[in-house]
């Protein structure tokens, strides 16, 4: 049995797929297993509800679109009660900033906006809550960023399409894996919206760049950074980074990838 949920939140859509039951198939024909599966399912369903509530709570605190969020108030220079989650997020942003020589920052337009970390972290929170509810196999997609855990069927990995930034009716590539994260930064949907902190200009060197890693918050923040760095520097940076692979579509349609990317490719 597969549990699915779609939740509009944080200005985008999160979708959650949880595979309940031990791989399905023959096993499920016995009553005993059916009972266990039922219990699992209600527990997992409750986990999904908890995760969704968590997403809304994160949004309330971190949204840059809500005037009353802690982040908006801090960005306006208002004094805000110390909040350990906010502090943690800002610490993570600072780490990534250091990792990327400033290509990622919590102040992309000179104003506090840690969204580049928050969305991925929110996905990780869903991942954590689902695991705590007993899930061994799930896939979470939040606004085009993906965190996978386990597998959708016995011996079958999760398959993730990478949207082609140039051709609307195709995927640029399909990748698959078990415990992995996929994040894409690009200009296709939102235009040139990533500011290169070094020049304060929108970065335009890629049509899109996709990073694969293990955890989505860092993978997503790195994708933003690599995009800002541009192809030459960005891909070299990704190549040297352990546990990160990159796949880029350039504005002229050529694709470039890091040396370890191919092992994720399907077909």
């Amino acid at each position: 049995m597969t549990l699915r949920h779609v939740e509009p939140v944080m200005g985008t859509v999160f979708s959650i797929v949880v595979e309940a039951g031990a791989g399905g198939g023959e096993l499920q024909k016995t009553n005993k297993i059916d009972k266990i599966n039922e219990m699992d399912e209600s527990r997992l369903g409750a986990g999904i509800a908890t995760a969704v509530a968590r997403l809304h709570a994160i949004d309330a605190k971190f949204s840059t679109y809500r005037e009353d969020s802690a982040i908006s108030r801090m960005a306006r220079g208002e004094s805000v009660e110390r909040d350990s989650e906010v502090a943690e997020v800002l610490r993570r942003c600072a780490e990534v900033e250091a990792d990327t020589d400033g290509a990622f920052t919590a102040y992309p337009a000179g104003r506090l906006d840690p969204s580049g970390w928050v969305k991925g972290w929110a996905i990780e929170e869903v991942d954590r809550i689902l695991r705590e509810a007993g899930s061994r196999d799930h896939l979470i997609v939040g606004g085009g960023d993906v965190q996978a855990h386990g597998e959708p069927g016995l011996g079958r990995p999760w398959t993730v399409g990478i949207a082609d930034p140039r051709q609307q009716d195709r995927y640029a590539a399909l990748v698959s894996g078990r415990d992995f994260a996929v994040a894409t930064s690009g200009t296709a949907e939102r235009g040139a919206h990533i500011i290169d902190p070094a020049t304060a200009e929108p970065a335009t060197g890629f049509a899109s760049v996709t990073l694969i890693g293990t955890r989505i918050a860092r993978t997503d923040a790195y994708a933003t950074a690599v995009f800002a760095m541009g192809p030459e520097r960005g891909l070299e940076w990704a190549q040297e980074r352990d546990g990160i692979e990159a796949y880029a579509v350039l504005p002229d349609g050529r694709t470039v990838e890091t040396s370890g990317f191919a092992r994720f490719l399907v077909g």
């Binding site: 779609v6 509009p8 200005g11 985008t12 859509v13 979708s15 797929v17 896939l139 997609v141 606004g143 085009g144 960023d145 993906v146 996978a148 959708p152 999760w158 398959t159 993730v160 399409g161 990478i162 949207a163 930034p165 995927y171 399909l174 996929v182 994040a183 894409t184 690009g186 296709a188 949907e189 939102r190 899109s208 996709t210």
Partner: peptide, 17 residues
């Protein structure tokens, strides 16, 4: 195509989905 998720399609997807 047996695709479980899509990376890189963010924005209009909200209302669409």
């Amino acid at each position: 195509a047996n695709i479980d998720g899509v990376s890189g399609a963010t924005y209009t997807s909200e209302g669409y989905q």
